[in-house]
Computed example of a mutant assay.
Amino acid sequence: MEEAMDMNGFLIEFVDMLEAIISTNENNPLKPVSYWTHITEQLDLVGWDRVTHMDQDMAKIQIELSDQAGRKHILTACFPPAFPNVPFTVEPLAVPQCESTSGLDQEAVMPSQLILIDGSSLRDAVRQAEKKLELFQDFWDVMQDFDDKTWVIDPENPTPSGRMRRCALGKHCSIQITVDPLSPFSLPESRLFGPPALIEPLRANLHRNTSLWDKTRFPRENLEKLLELADGFPSPTTVAKDTMHIECGICYAFRYEGQVPDQICGHDKCQRPYHRLCLYEIHIGRF
């Protein structure tokens, strides 16, 4: 339209554009002006610079939030066609699910949900979401410490709601930890994987040294002490990945169709990890 040479050319382009919009919305009637006005007013209050995604009809809008450590989070607001007569809704936040709820108020019991009353604005939702994020600052600090200073082999792409990390120990061994979001500096649930000859001494160390747990230190540091890891956890800054020996002994990959190697050969001369699926395919002759 900006390239139209005269008014007649501009009007022709304008009519073509309107016809395209109408044909696209035959099964989705155009929303009233009040719909657009009220949504833009909401965004004016929140700040357009915080919008990371917006549907063409503004039905779904994503707002960027930052926690105290500068980590980014997303709040997704959904606006119904009848907005503002029908209130908007927000999708659950990507925060960990809490199992221990003793002494917590209703908002903390369901941390992923925002409680919006009639007349709540988008700015109210943002403020409530930011308050929810404050509950998990220590938890995210703990998980980030694992991510930064260990070889995390599962999950492949950690999310803010993920409570589990499986960290490589080397020599086909690894440890899976599950952190309590509301008490992240407490002793986490732990499970060791690897050849029995190597895992049993680590398991004995863990049980024998449990009383040494120090809640003022990161769980990673505590686990290094309890497991008696002289050199600490292997990490990308201390060892090369190809020395971790975490790949499957059949397909020579760590992740295969979403699975990680969870079967360890008990033979003293092997003790390599294998995908359950690879073993099955060997058994039926597909490899």
Rank of each mutant, 00 (worst) to 15 (best):
Q263F: 05
C251S: 08
M244T: 12
R255A: 09
H267A: 12
F254I: 13
I250V: 15
E281F: 12
D268L: 01
R255H: 12
G249W: 05
Q263T: 08
V260Q: 04
V260I: 15
C248D: 04
I264P: 02
I264H: 03
P273M: 07
Y274V: 13
Y252H: 12
C278I: 02
Y256H: 08
I282N: 11
L279N: 01
G249R: 02
A253Q: 14
G266R: 12
P273A: 07
C270L: 07
H245P: 00
G266F: 01
E257F: 09
Y252L: 15
C251L: 05
C251W: 05
Y280A: 10
E257P: 00
V260S: 11
Y256C: 09
T243K: 15
Q271D: 06
I264N: 10
Q259G: 04
L277H: 07
P273F: 07
Q271E: 13
G249E: 04
Q263Y: 05
P273L: 09
Y256F: 12
E247R: 11
Y274P: 04
I250K: 05
Y252I: 01
G249F: 01
Y252F: 13
K269L: 02
I282R: 14
M244Y: 01
R276H: 11
E257I: 07
E281S: 02
C270S: 09
E247D: 14
H283Q: 12
E281A: 02
D262P: 00
Y252D: 10
Q259M: 13
P273K: 05
Q259H: 11
Y280F: 14
P261L: 04
C248P: 03
H283K: 15
E281Y: 15
I246T: 13
E257T: 04
I246F: 08
R272G: 00
H283T: 05
D268E: 09
Y280M: 13
Y252P: 00
V260E: 09
C270Y: 03
D242W: 07
T243C: 11
E281Q: 15
P261W: 10
C270G: 03
H245I: 03
V260A: 12
K269N: 06
A253N: 12
C248Y: 01
E281P: 00
Y256W: 06
I264Y: 08
Y280N: 13
C270T: 04
C265Q: 00
C248I: 05
R272A: 13
Y256K: 15
R272N: 13
H245K: 15
Y256V: 13
C251Y: 03
Q271Y: 01
C270H: 02
R272W: 07
L277R: 14
A253E: 14
Q263C: 12
E281M: 14
E247K: 10
Q271K: 10
G258S: 08
L279Y: 00
D242S: 15
P261V: 06
L277G: 02
C248H: 01
I282M: 13
H275F: 03
R276D: 14
I282W: 07
F254Y: 14
Y256Q: 05
G249H: 02
E247W: 01
R272M: 10
R272F: 03
I282Y: 01
